[in-house]
């Protein structure tokens, strides 16, 4: 078997779900920074979302499992800190999936565009932090539902 192309590897990684928010993939999240072959070794560079995000080690494990399951034998995962992760790297596909799942996607103005449940604009923040480091808690005053907002950084 020849080496799978880098594009194929990206496709495979796009099928690995984020462990905390499984509706989006690791590629959607924008944390896969580089995929390349060096000789017969595949090198994947991953950047953390937040410094202390507990999902980081699970993510590395999931990447390794997904690639080994597809026959990649020589694999090196590296942590790439710079440039730091930004929500600008979230894919449009990922943002749409987040909203459908009930999480308001990050918005450059620093607050949700609309309620992911009813589309209302009458919103208030209940906490700057949420159930994971990447989210904050908001509430919609129209439908009265609380929702997660993916913080913009």
């Amino acid at each position: 078997m020849g080496q799978p192309s880098v594009d194929t590897i990206w496709d495979w990684l796009d099928q690995v779900p984020d462990p905390e928010i499984p509706v989006i993939s690791l590629v959607d999240l924008g944390i896969i920074r580089d995929v390349k072959w060096e000789g017969d070794t595949l090198k994947v560079a991953v950047t953390p979302t937040y410094s202390g995000c507990p999902a980081t080690s699970v993510i590395n494990f999931d990447i390794e499992t997904a690639l080994r399951d597809r026959g990649i034998e020589k694999l090196t995962l590296t942590q790439q800190l710079s440039p730091p992760w930004t929500t600008d790297w979230l894919s449009d596909k990922g943002k749409a999936k987040l909203e459908k799942y009930g999480i308001a996607p990050p918005s450059p103005k620093g607050e949700p565009e609309r309620c992911p449940n009813c589309g209302g604009h009458n919103l208030e923040r209940t906490s700057q932090f949420g159930s994971t480091p990447c989210k904050a808690l908001w509430r919609c005053r129209d439908c009265l539902e609380p929702f997660d907002y993916f913080k913009c950084i």
Binding site: S51, G52, F129
Partner: peptide
């Protein structure tokens, strides 16, 4: 609850920075 979550997340960021 909101403050509990906020403090835990702040601590988590700090411990993450510590690892680096």
């Amino acid at each position: 609850l909101e403050e509990d979550i906020a403090l835990a997340n702040t601590a988590l960021d700090l411990i993450g920075q510590t690892q680096f």
